[in-house]
Design a protein around this nucleic acid. Structure first.
Length: 566
RNA sequence: GUCCCCAUCGUCUAGUGGCCUAGGACAUGGCCCUUUCAAGGCCAGAACACGGGUUCGACUCCCGUUGGGGACGCCA
């Protein structure tokens, strides 16, 4: 077909903070649809709110998307991503004001838009009245309307521009929800341009989608009610109508909508607890963020901290805030493909069975791009289930080769825990570490976490404490005692070669046989001496990760530190 | 309050009028394996919100009720 319109999908975030999981899923679906249809995925920054947008947040969102592997062909540039191959940019709405004004001029000329001089206070009062009378507020055009006078007046008075809304029912043909009718009472004379000269979301989105040739609009459910407004505007402007699809929302376990605000809310509660419990906490918090800002935020449950402030507070008070942004999950040590996979499954599924009869749930981006289709998006909202995400993470991490696991871990460490990676510089030992952590860590972060299964290998030989119960059970008691076993096995370990898991296991097994001891009688005392705890990876791996020098040093230290008093 | 959307195990879902004694996954419980911790294997319990229709036949179609979510900004 020669005249086919190339497919263009888009993700259009407003830069008010980190990308949250709902936005990430919307971006992922748009990306997948474009891939499937052989089109372009475009990124546009909706920064028309002068009070709220921040340039830092833009950078953060771009990095989050890039990390997830959601690559945009058109939009702001980052690394090799983005650009403007069709010449439809710029991609920041704040740089496109002339285009919105031009569209508005056409509407004014056709008498489809008009200036309104109501003050925000006046409108507020009207809304309050409506609410008190249990009516829905609806903007009513002035009855004594004089177009010529208004056009003169707008030259010298602050005003907004409103659309002269059509008096007709508009049917939204949604690809997920079907046909939805909105009566004329649903579409009032909404604002197109604000007092500050910036367009509202409605005007900007309609003008840009047309100018950028967007063919499919896939967005969150909060926009469903806006869609008839957008259609009305498109008709007034003579624009094409894109294909619409609204995806269901992602909810918290309690059923509320999952949003960036959840983190702020949780932080307020936890901070207040911390201040009550610890007198110094308030002072530390005020060292991290402005004291006045802090007080205002604590006192007003509706206020929100800036992203940077929230991060600072989280760090200084060591708050355990819910993960809601892509960055949160990255920091928590999830693989980007795992996050993509889980997010894709929230509201979409391929509907395929594996040969063993199970549903296909785990897949990569290539699979998503190949199979994605609007008609398999669900209609009901989905609760975000951290346990299932964690299970996916566990499984996908375990499926990595040792070398891949190690590379991914080092990459994660470089950003969040450089000292952990540095503590295990030796390549051979690091590979053993990878092998033994793979099935023991549900996330990359778990390996180095305090109390985590890999901690023993990342601390100095005298950098850990001995678990009292373990010492009592495995070193102080038994016949012979654990201490005696440690003394006698020392020579075996000093000579075992090569110092690798299999050889170590074999040497210890031989020692057990020769001394008539069960494996447990030897392995458990060793675990306590080398790691401080009675649980660790298989003995050969535990010793090989540490290396011979550390093993001997730790044996010496153990006997000295908690051995029998002589 | 008004409008809009939604409704299968605790959670994510398969299911498009007979393949359903409703399948899978996560979570939960039990057993097996085992030098510890994991991992792995096997088994179990667990759902069509309710009430009316339509139909020879409803999880599937229609209506209502209930419940949940969203929107009602000079935010996006």
């Amino acid at each position: 077909m020669s005249g086919a319109v190339p497919v263009v999908t888009r993700f259009a975030p407003s830069p008010t903070g980190h990308l949250h999981v709902g936005g990430a899923r919307t971006a992922l679906f748009n990306w997948a649809l474009a891939q499937k249809l052989g089109g372009h995925f475009l990124l546009r920054i909706e920064d028309t709110d002068q009070a709220r947008n921040s340039r830092d947040a833009v950078r953060g969102i771009l990095e989050d998307l890039a990390w997830l592997g959601i690559h945009w062909q058109e939009g702001p540039q980052l690394g090799g991503l983005g650009g403007d191959p069709r010449g439809v940019g710029p991609f920041f709405q704040s740089e496109r004001l002339a285009r919105y004004d031009a569209a508005l001029a056409r509407l004014i000329e056709k008498d489809l838009a008009y200036p309104a001089f109501d003050t925000p206070e006046e409108l507020d009062a009207l809304r309050k009245t409506a609410s008190a009378e249990k009516r829905a507020f609806r903007y009513v055009r002035a009855a004594d309307w004089d177009r010529a006078a208004a056009l003169v007046r707008m030259q010298r008075e602050p005003h907004v521009m409103r659309l002269r809304a059509p008096d007709e029912t508009i049917v939204v043909n949604d690809q997920v929800l079907g046909d939805i009718a909105f009566g004329p009472e649903q579409i009032d004379d909404f604002v197109l341009r604000k007092r500050d000269g910036f367009p509202t979301y409605h005007l900007a989105v309609v003008v840009d989608d047309e100018a950028m040739g967007v063919t499919h609009v896939l967005r969150g459910p909060e926009h469903l009610n806006n869609t008839p407004k957008h259609i009305a505007l498109q008709r007034a402007l003579g624009f094409a109508m894109p294909i619409y699809a609204h995806v269901p929302s992602i909810q918290n376990p309690d059923g509320s909508k999952m949003s960036k605000r959840d983190k702020d809310k949780a932080a307020r509660g936890l901070a207040q607890q911390a201040f009550a419990a610890d007198a110094g906490a308030r002072a530390r918090a005020e060292g991290a963020i402005d004291a006045k800002r802090l007080a205002a935020w604590l006192g007003d449950a509706k206020s929100q901290l800036e992203t940077g402030e929230l991060d600072a507070l989280e760090r200084t008070l060591a708050l355990d805030l819910p993960s809601v942004t892509v960055e949160d999950f990255r920091r928590a040590g999830y693989l980007p493909e795992t996050v993509d996979n889980y997010l894709a499954l929230l509201g979409w599924n391929p509907g395929e069975k594996l040969v063993d009869g199970r549903d296909r749930e785990q897949f990569d981006l290539a699979f998503l791009a190949d199979k994605f289709a609007l008609d398999r998006i669900g209609r009901g909202s989905a609760k975000f289930d951290r346990a299932k995400l964690l299970a996916f993470s566990q499984e996908q991490l375990a499926a990595l080769s040792d070398a891949d696991w190690l590379a991914r871990w080092r990459t994660w460490c470089a950003r969040y825990a450089p000292e952990a990676s540095a503590a295990l510089a030796d390549p051979a030992r690091a590979l053993v570490f990878a092998a033994s952590m793979k099935t023991r860590c549900a996330t990359l972060a778990a390996a180095s976490a305090p109390g985590g299964p890999g901690r023993f290998a990342l601390v100095a030989d005298d950098g850990f404490a001995y678990d009292e119960k373990a010492v009592a059970k495995w070193l102080a008691t038994g016949e012979p005692t654990g201490w005696a076993v440690l003394e006698s096995v020392r020579a075996t370990l000093a000579e075992a070669a090569p110092f690798e898991p299999a050889a170590i296991e074999a040497a210890v097994a031989k020692f057990c046989e020769a001394s008539g001891l069960g494996m447990g009688k030897v392995a458990q005392p060793l675990r306590v001496a080398l790691t401080g705890a009675a649980a660790s990876p298989p003995l050969g791996e535990t010793l090989a990760v540490l290396g011979r020098d550390s093993v001997l040093a730790r044996l010496t230290r153990c006997l000295a530190a908690c051995g029998p008093r002589t």
